[in-house]
Nucleic acid binder design. Sequence first.
DNA 1: GTACGCCTTTGACATGAATCAAAATCAGAG
DNA 2: CTCTGATTTTGATTCATGTCAAAGGCGTAC
Lengths: 251, 251
Amino acid sequence: MAQAIRLRQASSPLKASCHQCSLSNLCLPLAIEDNDLERLEDIVQQGRIYNRGEHIFDQSTPFRACFAVRSGSIKTSIITEGGEEQVTGFFMPGEIVGLDSMSSENYACTAKALERTSVCEFPVEKLEELTRKLPELQHHMYHLMSHEIQNSHQLAMLLSKNTAEERIAALLLSLSSRFQRRRMSGTNFSLPMARNDIANFLGLAVETVSRVFTRFQNQGIIKARGREVELLDVEALQMVTREFAHQNCNN
Amino acid sequence: MAQAIRLRQASSPLKASCHQCSLSNLCLPLAIEDNDLERLEDIVQQGRIYNRGEHIFDQSTPFRACFAVRSGSIKTSIITEGGEEQVTGFFMPGEIVGLDSMSSENYACTAKALERTSVCEFPVEKLEELTRKLPELQHHMYHLMSHEIQNSHQLAMLLSKNTAEERIAALLLSLSSRFQRRRMSGTNFSLPMARNDIANFLGLAVETVSRVFTRFQNQGIIKARGREVELLDVEALQMVTREFAHQNCNN
DNA sequence: GTACGCCTTTGACATGAATCAAAATCAGAG
DNA sequence: CTCTGATTTTGATTCATGTCAAAGGCGTAC
């Protein structure tokens, strides 16, 4: 511990303590037995704290590490040649950012802190090496990556087949369940991202997002004041997301 | 070799010969040094041949293996609770199907042969084990998976920001480059999938796909008769996909 | 060769969401 | 606390694409 403090004073990254981290049941340690945990701690660096708007990494810069969100939240986005932004994901505490760049030369997207955010850093080469030694960790990496593919397919589906209302309901429910995983309220939370980011992520215009929010509010399904959201009727929201499916069931 | 023939006669899966396969520079062997190749061959099974419409695997059945396309082509799709289909990808010779299910209990999608198709089969447990022993193979797996995440993000982007024409131009160009990788004509090929599948994949109505094809044809950009396609003006197609970006450049 | 079903194309019309415009609200800097 | 720019909301209008309807073309099976 004294060692760690000395390191920090030398402005070197602090060695992380996964043992003590409250997110260890969500994050990478989830996959690892207690007595192997130290080996993960050996390669993890507790990164610095980022202020809102700061970049954790930038698209097309050399890929060095994956990051686990410790607190705060992150949005990832791709910038096209024409300078258009496409938000590809939002990441909350315990979630891993950068998997889409694994084994690429450069980062495939840009990661930006949506609020004051701290992260843990997993240098790639070391991570890759460690996954060779810890089969469960390798397995978990495959799991995380395949999960991200599935997520992305889900998103594609949402974008190609669902209405504005369905997309927004789905996002609210996704956020809700992710808050719940962290033992926070699933019905009363504050959105980490602006309407603009929601719109971009869901392939809608900002105005449409705004309109749907007020529509949901008028229907008594949610209560929203700025970024503060309260889900008043979760079942109704679930109905909205499945409406599409239900219609087909009845035909 | 005699051994292999005997196996086939016993209607057991034939041991594949990656050494002799013309796709070895596209497929998994790409990542492996010659003297390690046998170890891959040890775990690969040359799967059977599937007729058009046959399923290689089904969503929600136990995940057993990834597949490399040897000849023919495959489409993958997700079926929602309501029975709606969403096509998530098309796979051509040398490409790997099933990565989105890696380390899941069950297949995340259904894979269907679009034409007479043969595949090689990589049982998961063996593959996972082998990747632990061959660092380059592990690296390549990470690479393939992260690439599929990126692909999927690209698709999401196409779906959320681009017009029907842009989406279809992008698909045609993607197919073109994939044919070229196999040293086939990049301007003269036959689409393995029906208009319906294209429409579903790109989040459009069949009618829209059809209309865009005829519009492109009238503009002299392509020539299409049924599934036979000739790209007459590749640059024009590239212009279409980048039009969106260019507009913003000029502003 | 013919008939059947399926896939594709074409046309007319309806609509959800984008765009344009502007007011209202919020948050950060000084 | 006040100003200023950014974000959010609301309204009016437009447009690309979906939907409905029907005809045409193609391949397969008999």
